[in-house]
Design a protein around this nucleic acid. Structure first.
Lengths: 264, 264
DNA sequence: TTTTTGTAGATTGTCAACAATCTACGATAT
DNA sequence: ATATCGTAGATTGTTGACAATCTACAAAAA
């Protein structure tokens, strides 16, 4: 069942780019759609981004095996770029490699998640401290808009809507620090955590209410430039999120979500 | 002058592993020296570690260009593993890639260093907080031994000895947290910073004295379990290290050190 | 002299093929 | 019936070759 892949090649439509041998003279009307992309981006980067998207979106479940040739067929590239992309994702902590066995979407155990949450708490604390003194009015407005939408999702208890809003809230806050190194580190940590906590807030609706309250307090501290307070509030917010997740995971699972790909 | 490399191949001795075609039947006396290594480690991993070693040791200067074929000849492997190792180092923040131009040892500007130092301060603050409550007596003893050696180096103002001791001090402290995710993140950040601050403490001898004083205060707080104090001391220690570095770099450069490889 | 242009060499990006290892499954023996 | 062994297929690890791009240098034009 798994390998209906290496038979034909033309049937499947390449997802990201055409082969450079096809399309001898593309019409100049299109501004070099995919061509300019390949002028400045390597196939490896494209492949890496696509696989990462599939992982963080949940299309590939934690523990799923990533077959090289399957990705070659799906994306219309050879194994070289795919393998290079695997190495990047490995360093990013999204996949794990076993020699001669393959690469798998990383599984984050509860113990690892606890550890990563502590790292995230420290980073988020710094984010609060810096954002309090550097946030721009535009960013502050965007932050308030996000929380406003969160309150709406809170009323309807719509977790599917709340989850991306939560990500956006913290993303905007991180950007408000203006510290690129911090933003990059923060994103990687959050990416890793998302391998674990995808089901958070889906199980205990009450968490949404409490989380939103904390977000409002954080905004207040950041808006008034209280660096120390914002730092402490964000640190504690992350630690409490961790505890909320643990309590949620101890509960019986709710309805299943759109089925992700097979997990080994 | 640069390319005395692609002429012959047998003259240069492979640095990490023999080709699998040579050595038909190795004597069982040797416990499979490099053979077992390749059973469980990929060439990519070996290459990645070797290049990383050359970067962090300073053999390759910041900005130096990494030529694929040179590494192939030097390590006795083909370009595949070398390119995969490049992608790993890229994700680790040690090299930068320009499409169709090559990869270069990353140059960390003073602005980037400032940003990274803030991240490190947050991580080190967490390290202090956690180490204060989790450090073992053995680790504490090792910490004190390191500081003792630091005091000796302080008297002779031997910066060459002080630098690795400083790294070891913070490494032991990080390990004392028992948090693997924190340790991994911390190491990556320190690795990046080392691209910038190699010359720190080499220029202003007085820094050694001040730094050691702060280390002793940190040990005191950690040893007595004062988590909050240790956190604050370590955070401030990192920020002050950053300021010390900036002051040191503003001074005239001291004698040159052992020349690293060419910088582009 | 300075600038431009063009060509040869070197280097990177990508691909296809070979070798080694692992996995699945059936035959044989107990 | 169960367990062990062995073989065929699939998958990964590695290599060498080809195509595209860049770099350096020299010749020609301004």
């Amino acid at each position: 069942m798994t390998g209906a892949s290496n038979t034909t090649r033309d049937a499947t439509r390449p997802a990201i780019a055409l082969r450079n041998k096809a399309a001898p003279a593309p019409p100049p009307a299109t501004p070099g759609d995919a061509l300019r992309l390949l002028r400045e981006q390597s196939l490896t980067a494209l492949v890496q981004r696509e696989i990462e998207r599939q992982i963080v979106s949940g299309d590939l479940a934690a523990g799923a095996k990533l077959n090289e040739i399957d990705f070659c067929n799906e994306l219309g590239v050879s194994r070289g770029p795919v393998r290079e992309a695997f190495r990047m994702l490995e360093q990013a902590g999204l996949v794990r490699t076993e020699k001669n066995r393959g690469v798998f979407v990383r599984q984050v155990s509860i113990e690892e998640a606890n550890e990563i949450y502590e790292v995230r708490a420290a980073l988020d604390g710094l984010i609060g401290r810096l954002a309090a003194s550097r946030i721009t009015p535009a960013q502050l407005a965007r932050l308030k808009a996000v929380v406003k939408r969160m309150r709406a999702a809170e009323r309807t208890l719509d977790a599917d809507e709340y989850f991306p809003l939560n990500l956006e809230f913290h993303e905007v806050l991180a950007e408000a620090t203006g510290n690129a190194a911090l933003i990059a580190n923060y994103r990687r940590v959050v990416n890793e955590l998302n391998l674990y906590r995808r089901e958070m807030l889906l199980r205990d609706a009450d968490n949404i209410t409490r989380s939103t309250r904390e977000h409002e307090a954080i905004i207040e501290a950041v808006a008034t430039g209280q660096a120390e307070t914002a730092e402490r509030l964000l640190f504690d917010h992350v630690i409490r999120s961790r505890e909320r997740l643990h309590r949620a995971l101890a509960m019986p699972a709710p309805r299943a979500r759109k089925a992700p790909r097979k997990a080994a």
